[in-house]
Design a protein around this nucleic acid. Structure first.
Lengths: 138, 138
DNA sequence: TTATGTGCAAAACATTTGCAGGAGT
DNA sequence: ACTCCTGCAAATGTTTTGCACATAA
């Protein structure tokens, strides 16, 4: 586990990272807590929050501050975009090529020093499309 | 005030909308509450939340679910993008031309029905840049 | 050995909701 | 009048934090 100076390798951290790596969903802190608790029943929710935050800061994982009420976490660090279903809240990856120039364009258009960007698409996931179709049939 | 059927024109709603229209910042519900309370001291925070939500639903205002812990509101409904300062949390508008095709590209790349997108840039605002410069001098 | 991390519980925030009384239409 | 809306306060949901004990290095 890549780590910051003075960051200890604890069982809790290993397992949080392992569990996050197992899924392709983008779990919330509470969902990670549930996953981890199956292997470490006595772990505290605070520990999960603290460590997800720490790992996100050190770049080991990604913290997604997407729409919705909760933050989500992603073991895939490489830049990529997300689609969120407006109806059920599910978040999926989406691989598209966006010109790297977009940060430059933004920097030219503002007085900020642009450090990055995040694009979030919103729409309806296949499952919700099905449900809607089913519902409107009666 | 453009409104949904059965949506009454109350003093509270008028003033919330007026106050939101006065500022170019992107206030949180609590900031709107503070602004409105100067004119309507007995208004409840719940009322502010309820009405901001309602207005956003009816398209009169925009609800920004940007990064950070709180939702923000914007009286400007026309599509535009935002920059958020990573250091102080300030949110500004940014006017750039992004190809409308981006939704089509995303739709092709996923199995979602794409309804919209949101681009949020992150960076350092001029004020924080100044402060950082000042701090690193000693 | 000792600084860092953990579990637990309480606190801090942000937002939503139930309800009795108030106000627009 | 008849809904819909409001203020208030309590409830809910998410995240953070204080502290005594545990543990990696």
């Amino acid at each position: 586990m890549e780590q910051l100076p003075n960051m200890r390798l604890t069982t809790q951290r290993q397992i949080i990272l392992e569990e996050l790596g197992k899924v392709t969903s983008h779990p919330t802190a509470n969902e990670v807590y549930d996953m981890v608790r199956k292997r470490l029943p006595r772990i505290g929710l605070g520990t999960v929050y603290r460590n997800l935050e720490l790992m996100a800061d050190s770049g080991i994982i990604l913290k997604l501050e997407v729409g919705g009420t909760q933050k989500r976490f992603d073991a895939t660090v490489a830049p990529h975009y997300h689609v969120r279903c407006t109806f059920c809240g599910k978040v999926d990856d989406i691989d598209i090529e966006v010109q790297n120039k977009i940060n430059q364009i933004a920097e030219t258009a503002s007085d900020y020093m642009i450090l990055g960007h995040h694009i979030e698409f919103s729409g309806m996931c296949p499952r919700c499309s099905e449900e809607k179709k089913a519902t409107s049939l009666h």
